[in-house]
């Protein structure tokens, strides 16, 4: 039981670090020979991956996984609210620009 909790935490760490390293690849493939290029796909992917990490930190590191239903719902709702707020700010900003 206890070793499995330890192992699970380690796996969570490996996953969040791996996602961080994926950014390096996204970043490399997004640019045109070192010059940064605007890209909706990269922006949406960056926000999406960050929220996946956000959710893993909440669930695994902060142990929301074992929390009562109410707290799990509230934190899930928080992730959704952040996602919607960030994407709408970005897309509304683009539409206005």
């Amino acid at each position: 039981m206890e070793t499995s909790a330890k192992k699970r935490l380690l796996v969570a760490w490996v996953v969040v670090v791996a996602i961080t390293v994926i950014y390096l690849w996204i970043d490399r493939s997004a640019d045109d020979r070192g010059v940064l290029v605007s890209s909706v796909a990269v922006t949406v992917a960056a926000i999406g991956l960050a929220l996946v990490k956000f959710r893993i930190i909440l669930g695994e590191f902060m142990d929301v996984r074992h929390a009562p239903r109410a707290l799990r719902r509230i934190t899930d709702l928080l992730v959704v609210v952040i996602a919607m707020a960030l994407l709408s700010a970005y897309f509304v900003g683009r539409a206005v620009a």
Binding site: T20, Y23, I26, D27, A30, A46, I47, A50, L86
Partner: peptide, 16 residues
Amino acid sequence: VDLFWVLIFALLYIVR
């Protein structure tokens, strides 16, 4: 503190 950094990092360094 870690949660906030994960978002800040993606928004400042990665977003295009």
